[in-house]
Design a protein around this nucleic acid. Structure first.
Lengths: 124, 124
DNA sequence: CTATTAATGCAACATAGTTGCGTTTATAAA
DNA sequence: TTTATAAACGCAACTATGTTGCATTAATAG
């Protein structure tokens, strides 16, 4: 992947952000640095490279966040929980929260999307 | 809520369906019985009445499914898992699968969205 | 410095969901 | 049974989100 200006800026934005960002939020924060389509494409590529991960919030909105732990492990996985605050709207990774569950036989799980909504500590 | 034709048909569709349905899937199956906007509005009302529940699949697509267990309990809750098969595309309720997890202090959970993707027993 | 091709911008399109408003119709009351 | 009322509906228009094709630009290897 080429080291373009758009890639640098978007990667920095996501990795330094406290909260997960949607493509349109990224676009807004870039303030015209690049085209809307480029935002989608760069985010897609960053995710393929394993630099960031994606998931959907409780409303079905696509969100991206950076990985902090996964790079140190053998296998990348993003099965941790995400929290969607209904007051401030922030979506954050709860990297240490992994759900446990018992599936019926016959199901083969590839991905886990575990998003909680409610009130975060800041808004409490 | 008035007992309209659209309400009857959509309620029956959702409750008899083996899989969760999106608004557009409902619209297709109704085959012109009512307007697209009506589908959204009826689904919304059915959900408010607690007859059906909604959630988003792994791709962020809104899905509706009927409640089988919750009406017999004191409190309605839809914290069970949903399974999204990547082969057939079906999204089904796993009504008996509830995730357990340990949240950090300060978070107050209102809703749980727990969607697994992978291969279902039929497609295995 | 040059060639290659990844990356971008633009325009156009597709899908999903929402809103306002005039009309229809289920339901309760006369 | 008829009538009044407001819920429910249809239509049109709009916003947001995401995608695709293609010509142009620019990062990088040689």
């Amino acid at each position: 992947m080429r080291n373009t200006v758009a890639k640098q800026e978007i990667e920095q934005l996501i990795t330094t952000s406290e909260v997960a960002l949607s493509p349109s939020e990224v676009e807004t924060q870039l303030d015209g640095l690049c085209n809307r389509v480029t935002v989608y494409r760069v985010l897609e590529r960053l995710e393929k490279e394993g630099i960031i991960h994606k998931f959907t919030n409780v409303n079905g909105v696509l969100k991206y966040a950076s990985c902090h732990n996964c790079s140190t492990q053998n296998k990348h996985h993003h099965n941790h929980a995400h929290f969607n605050c209904v007051k401030c709207g922030d979506v954050t990774c709860l990297e240490n929260v992994e759900p446990s569950f018992n599936l019926p036989k016959g199901y083969k799980v590839a991905e886990v999307n575990f998003t909680l909504s409610g009130v975060c500590p800041k808004c409490k």
